[in-house]
Computed example of a mutant assay.
Amino acid sequence: MSAQKNESFRWLNDEEQAAWRAYLTASARLQQQLDRDLQQNSGMPHAYYMILAMLSEAPDRGMRMTDLAELLSSSPSRLSHAIRKLVELDWIRKDADADDGRVTWACLTDEGMRVLVEAAPGHVTTVVESLFDRLTPTQVAQLREISTAMLQD
């Protein structure tokens, strides 16, 4: 691919280009592995697992839909679609906010908690084997530092 020289922005140098491509490939492969393993072992995609996990950690196992979408870096419409499926499975229920009828809460049901607890060991095993077993303790600390820096606004 031929790129025209444009001096109005900085191109990636060779090291940055190699790092960027490795990051994209590694991230995609990890997401694919998580999805594949969760589908195979628990019958759910990784996105559903993350919704259940975030709700399990919330006070009273519930969150405002807008807060959950932000936490998961998801669009409200994409989250709403997933929540509909999870409601059909009886893993989540939707509650209206008592003070503001425009606000909807997603709440983890007992069945959803049971499914999450059952899926968690396989999910964690995949994360450990696919990521952390391949890194030194120093690299784990660097990964956290890099990820935290990327999340800064």
Score class of each variant (00 low, 15 high):
residue 3 A to P: 01
residue 4 Q to G: 08
residue 4 Q to C: 10
residue 4 Q to W: 01
residue 4 Q to R: 09
residue 5 K to S: 09
residue 7 E to Y: 13
residue 8 S to L: 09
residue 8 S to G: 06
residue 9 F to W: 10
residue 10 R to G: 02
residue 11 W to V: 11
residue 11 W to L: 13
residue 13 N to H: 03
residue 13 N to C: 10
residue 13 N to L: 04
residue 16 E to C: 11
residue 16 E to G: 13
residue 17 Q to K: 05
residue 19 A to L: 15
residue 19 A to G: 02
residue 21 R to K: 11
residue 23 Y to T: 13
residue 23 Y to E: 09
residue 24 L to I: 09
residue 25 T to V: 12
residue 26 A to P: 04
residue 27 S to K: 13
residue 29 R to C: 12
residue 32 Q to I: 12
residue 32 Q to T: 15
residue 33 Q to R: 08
residue 33 Q to T: 11
residue 35 D to K: 07
residue 35 D to P: 07
residue 35 D to A: 08
residue 35 D to V: 08
residue 35 D to L: 09
residue 36 R to C: 12
residue 37 D to M: 08
residue 38 L to E: 05
residue 42 S to R: 00
residue 42 S to Y: 01
residue 42 S to T: 03
residue 46 H to C: 10
residue 47 A to D: 04
residue 49 Y to T: 02
residue 51 I to F: 07
residue 51 I to D: 04
residue 52 L to H: 06
residue 52 L to S: 00
residue 53 A to F: 04
residue 57 E to R: 12
residue 58 A to N: 03
residue 58 A to D: 07
residue 58 A to V: 06
residue 60 D to E: 15
residue 60 D to T: 13
residue 60 D to H: 10
residue 63 M to N: 02
residue 64 R to Q: 10
residue 65 M to S: 06
residue 65 M to V: 07
residue 66 T to G: 04
residue 66 T to S: 11
residue 68 L to S: 03
residue 68 L to M: 05
residue 72 L to R: 02
residue 72 L to M: 13
residue 73 S to N: 14
residue 74 S to I: 03
residue 74 S to T: 04
residue 75 S to D: 11
residue 76 P to E: 13
residue 77 S to V: 04
residue 79 L to T: 02
residue 80 S to R: 10
residue 80 S to G: 15
residue 81 H to E: 07
residue 81 H to Y: 02
residue 84 R to N: 08
residue 86 L to M: 15
residue 86 L to H: 00
residue 88 E to V: 05
residue 89 L to Y: 12
residue 90 D to S: 11
residue 90 D to R: 12
residue 91 W to Q: 01
residue 91 W to G: 00
residue 92 I to C: 05
residue 94 K to I: 13
residue 97 D to S: 15
residue 97 D to G: 14
residue 98 A to F: 05
residue 99 D to Q: 09
residue 100 D to Y: 04
residue 100 D to P: 04
residue 100 D to W: 01
residue 101 G to M: 05
residue 101 G to W: 08
residue 103 V to G: 01
residue 104 T to K: 09
residue 105 W to K: 02
residue 106 A to V: 06
residue 106 A to K: 07
residue 108 L to N: 03
residue 109 T to G: 08
residue 109 T to C: 10
residue 110 D to G: 12
residue 112 G to Y: 13
residue 114 R to G: 10
residue 114 R to V: 09
residue 115 V to N: 02
residue 117 V to T: 14
residue 117 V to Y: 07
residue 117 V to A: 09
residue 118 E to S: 10
residue 118 E to H: 11
residue 119 A to R: 00
residue 122 G to E: 08
residue 125 T to A: 12
residue 126 T to M: 06
residue 126 T to C: 10
residue 126 T to A: 09
residue 127 V to S: 04
residue 127 V to G: 02
residue 128 V to E: 03
residue 129 E to T: 11
residue 129 E to Q: 15
residue 129 E to R: 14
residue 131 L to H: 00
residue 136 T to Q: 06
residue 138 T to G: 12
residue 139 Q to P: 03
residue 139 Q to E: 14
residue 140 V to F: 03
residue 140 V to A: 06
residue 143 L to Q: 04
residue 143 L to A: 14
residue 145 E to Y: 07
residue 145 E to W: 07
residue 145 E to D: 15
residue 147 S to T: 15
residue 151 L to V: 14
residue 153 D to E: 14
